[in-house]
Amino acid sequence: MSGVRQTVRYTEYHPRWYRTRVSTWWWLSRWPYLKFILREISSVFVAWFVVVLLLQIRALSRGPQAYAAFEHWLQIPVIVLLNLTAMFFVTFHAVTWFNLTPRAMVVRFGGKRVPDGLIVGTNYAAWAAVSVVLAWFLLRS
């Protein structure tokens, strides 16, 4: 096995090369890179949602009074603003995730690769169906 895993190898005894260092702000240099970093940042808002969910579970467990306080907390403008931002990011996550699925997972049917558009379309249809089912459970009362 070669040593590539451990080190970067270049030709030895070469005259001076010029190497540029990657800027810390490389992801601001081009729109696709910025979009990439925003996609990755969406994970923070996924975690934020889990925090809200855990607070809801705790409040429900503690009784009606605690739950009313939790509902009140959700109405604080800062929290609404935060949730609005989170909504943008989790939707961005969902859209990018579904669009990239066919690239990461090749589905073959009868020897032929299933067209990307079909996989993406199926994803969106399933997303709509899952959303309706979950909303139905939460709103049934």
Partner: peptide, 21 residues
């Protein structure tokens, strides 16, 4: 990632926006 993409938008929309507002 799959779970979050399918489930979180609707949860967050209802809990974080539609109900409080």
């Amino acid at each position: 990632g799959v779970f979050a993409a399918f489930a979180i938008p609707v949860h967050l929309f209802l809990l974080g926006l539609a109900f409080p507002l």
